[in-house]
Computed example of a mutant assay.
Amino acid sequence: MTQYSSWAEVKRRMRENQPEVSDAEWESRKQAARTATEAHVVGYHLREIREEQGLTQGQVAQSLGISQARSPRSSGVRSTTWRRCAPMRRHLGPGSR
């Protein structure tokens, strides 16, 4: 037998240890985790494309007419989606789609 637990077993134990959490709350937590993961991936890809083109965040933000603070960052992005990054994708070109 392996010393590692299956993902299903880990989730089952989490539910057992927190019986006060409703099914709706579990679903909400899962959706929040998915959103955070997507934001991280989007930010990573945009950063890679921007760096390939030799651009800084400030340069991209300036060309979009926004402050650098409003431009998606590769880390700490909370709710960035491909739709919300459309202006940046257009600016960076076909490789960002």
Rank of each mutant, 00 (worst) to 15 (best):
M1G: 10
T2N: 13
T2E: 10
Q3L: 11
S5P: 05
S5E: 07
A8C: 06
E9N: 09
E9P: 04
V10D: 01
R13M: 15
R13V: 12
M14K: 08
R15P: 03
E16H: 13
N17F: 14
Q18C: 12
P19I: 02
V21Y: 07
E25F: 01
W26G: 01
W26L: 02
E27C: 08
S28A: 15
R29W: 13
R29D: 10
K30Q: 08
Q31S: 12
Q31I: 15
Q31H: 12
A32W: 05
A32E: 04
A32T: 12
A33F: 06
R34M: 07
T35H: 05
T35K: 08
A39D: 00
A39S: 04
H40R: 14
H40T: 10
H40A: 15
V41P: 06
V42S: 00
V42I: 06
G43Q: 01
H45K: 08
L46D: 01
E48P: 00
E48K: 12
I49L: 11
I49N: 00
E51S: 07
E52Q: 15
E52A: 13
Q53G: 05
Q53F: 04
G54V: 04
T56K: 01
T56G: 00
T56W: 02
T56A: 03
Q57C: 12
G58W: 02
Q59N: 00
V60A: 06
S63D: 07
L64K: 01
G65P: 01
I66R: 03
I66Q: 03
I66M: 06
S67D: 12
S67T: 15
S67H: 09
S67R: 11
Q68Y: 06
A69Q: 09
P72Y: 04
R73I: 04
S74K: 09
S75Y: 10
S75K: 13
S75W: 09
S75F: 09
G76D: 06
V77I: 12
V77N: 14
R78N: 11
R78V: 13
S79M: 11
W82V: 10
R83K: 15
R83P: 06
R84Q: 15
R84P: 09
R84H: 13
C85N: 06
C85G: 08
C85T: 10
A86I: 05
M88Q: 15
H91D: 03
L92P: 00
G93Q: 01
P94Q: 05
P94I: 05
P94R: 06
P94C: 05
G95F: 14
S96I: 03
S96Y: 00
S96M: 04
S96D: 10
R97K: 14
R97H: 14
